[in-house]
Design a protein around this nucleic acid. Structure first.
Lengths: 164, 164
DNA sequence: CTTAATCCTTGAAAATGTCAATCATTTATT
DNA sequence: AATAAATGATTGACATTTTCAAGGATTAAG
């Protein structure tokens, strides 16, 4: 998931476009990797002006909202090692964007909550990433985007349509 | 990109499922990352018995098929640095799965072609990855899978439906 | 009360990403 | 044709990320 793109100006049609004939071009895994890689570049570029990357933005986003996530929950939800969460939160906390609070029923765990400043920054950053997402998918129709979102959610969460 | 998952037995419903309420859960970029991360784990697990990973499998797959890709084309197509391609091909070549041939019209470039053994291994590995993909998406209907594939291709290749 | 398990944290090791320099070759300019 | 600029592959150095194992604090189980 971790893959980067050399030239962000050209979405995917360089001198290697002929390789799209290959059989792997129809692998959903491969397409997922490519679209995700391209999106990461756009997202990180959009988040740079806020001093955030995809990772820190995700943590900040989860720290906003009234559900006080545990560091372990963050790690599991973001598919990251717990030690990586420590580093991410250290940085966000030093910048005054989130706070570590002791767990309510279990004092081993630490709940991560966004500060007021964190929420403000998140709102601005959210606009930027959503704009980047729209730009990346602008060749898709509204129906296609909705369909993509819905299918991805079903695939990721094994099909419980409980959430908006 | 490039994210990993800790527990492959459980697709996404662990103790952190409640975090799915968060707003990022509807970000296509986030969903892409999560599905891609989970798929990578499955793919790498399926490819391990052949001594391959996603990267080397992709290179091998592109080396099969009659289009003789250049190392630079491979780098661009796979969104990798050219130096990473060198290492990947070194390994595949040492195992006798691919060969480096001098470029036809340009002797600077090297064409990568699979050997007979490489093709045999690729065929077996392809079965394994396709089975893994089917397993990962088994909760989707056939229509949904087809729709997902088609939309992803359109998004990745900016909408030229020139390729099957 | 003791043992085992869990959460966060730290640090080290391995893998990967990024970048600049080099050689051989090709393309462009005079 | 001669020189200069550009390109493809390669190497090696450096930064970042991933992965693991171990530790202290706390909770759960026996």
């Amino acid at each position: 998931m971790t893959q980067q793109v050399n030239d962000a100006t050209e979405s995917s049609g360089g001198a290697s476009a002929r390789l799209a004939e290959s059989s792997i071009s129809t692998d959903i895994g491969f397409l997922l990797a490519k679209l995700h890689a391209a999106g990461s570049v756009l997202n990180n570029a959009a988040l740079a002006e806020f001093g955030l990357k995809e990772r820190s933005y995700s943590v900040l986003a989860l720290a906003c909202g009234d559900l006080g996530p545990t560091q372990r929950e963050l790690a599991e939800f973001l598919s990251l090692d717990p030690s990586q969460i420590v580093a991410l939160i250290d940085e966000l906390e030093q910048r005054g964007l989130v706070e570590r609070k002791p767990g309510i029923s279990d004092r081993r765990q630490k709940l991560v909550a966004a500060t007021e400043g964190g929420r403000t920054l998140h709102a601005a950053a959210q606009n930027a990433t959503q704009a980047a997402e729209s730009r990346q998918l602008e060749m898709l129709t509204g129906e296609e985007v909705a369909s993509l979102r819905s299918i991805l959610r079903k695939a990721v969460w094994s099909g419980n349509p409980a959430d908006r």
